[in-house]
């Protein structure tokens, strides 16, 4: 029995590993590079300064086309912004509110409780402005792609000239990490295109890392709390498990030698 159990365990394990891996084998695109993000490890946390730089990259580069509609400005306190900073970012945005007592809609500066603004009124407007392509919302992007963080990092830094013999469609760009290797989005990250508030040099690689850190946090803002709680739960259960097993041994001890 034991032997078979072991065989099952190995089989089940192999199935669990092979199934996700095989997805890459089927698609026409490259496996993402491993960017070794600190938050990707089992107990990892989000680098606050990186996430804040990522916010800046999102605001100055991505936000032109991509929304972040599930995120509220108040959430920014979680990556270490002060309340004043978060309020200032919110106040930069004009929000349509109302109707007021006269029944009119009106514009007001954003508050902490407001969500991030969507760059286009609707999908049609987005497509019209982007050569028919629809820039997806980034709120849960890191968990909406296989190996999301590494994938987005690889994609952002993966633009290159198409290999000989490959023709790229009209208005498309070559990127080996995208399904089909052609993507409507152009390369948007170039060295030193912006200046980080904390003085870090804005290389394309740095900006990609930072914005992925920011988006990973935005996709799963509960990550750090979840991992901390997980440790406590597992320790609690482990102690309880040892105690329960000892009690079990004691209760069963006399049964081994005598008929009940």
């Amino acid at each position: 029995m034991k032997r078979y159990l072991k065989a099952f365990a190995v089989l089940a394990g192999l199935t669990a590993v092979a199934v996700p891996v095989a997805v890459y084998a089927a698609g026409e695109y490259d496996k993402p590079r491993d960017a070794r993000f600190g938050f990707a490890s089992l107990l990892g946390t989000f680098d606050r300064s990186s996430a804040q730089r990522g916010l800046q990259v999102y605001q100055e580069v991505c936000a032109a086309c991509h929304g972040l509609r599930l995120l509220s400005f108040r959430n920014l306190l979680e990556i270490g912004l002060t309340e004043e900073q978060a309020r200032a970012i919110a106040a930069n945005v004009q929000v349509t509110d109302g109707p007021n007592d006269e029944g009119q809609m009106f514009e007001r500066p954003g508050r902490l409780s407001d969500r991030f603004r969507r760059p286009f009124a609707n999908e049609q407007a987005a497509r019209a402005a982007n050569n028919g392509a629809y820039p997806p919302d980034l709120s849960v992007m890191v968990k909406a792609r296989k190996n999301g963080a590494n994938y987005i990092y690889s994609l952002l830094t993966g633009y290159r000239d198409p290999p000989p013999g490959v023709t790229v469609g009209d208005g498309m760009n070559y990127n080996p990490y995208f399904a089909g290797r052609q993507i409507a989005m152009a390369n948007v990250l170039n060295d030193d295109q912006l200046e980080f508030a904390d003085g870090t040099r804005a290389t394309a690689d740095q900006m990609a890392r930072d914005v992925v850190t920011f988006l990973a946090w935005a996709s799963e803002p509960e990550t750090e709390q979840r991992r901390r709680m997980g440790i406590r739960v597992l320790i609690f259960l482990a102690v309880g498990g040892v105690l329960a097993y000892m009690v079990k041994r004691k209760i069963w001890a006399d049964l081994k030698t005598k008929p009940a």
């Binding site: 089992l42 979840r226 991992r227 709680m229 997980g230 440790i231 739960v233 597992l234 259960l237 482990a238 498990g241």
Partner: peptide, 11 residues
């Protein structure tokens, strides 16, 4: 069982 479950949920 709860330990396996918790590992999945939290990590």
């Amino acid at each position: 069982y709860l330990m396996v479950f918790a590992f999945l949920v939290f990590f």
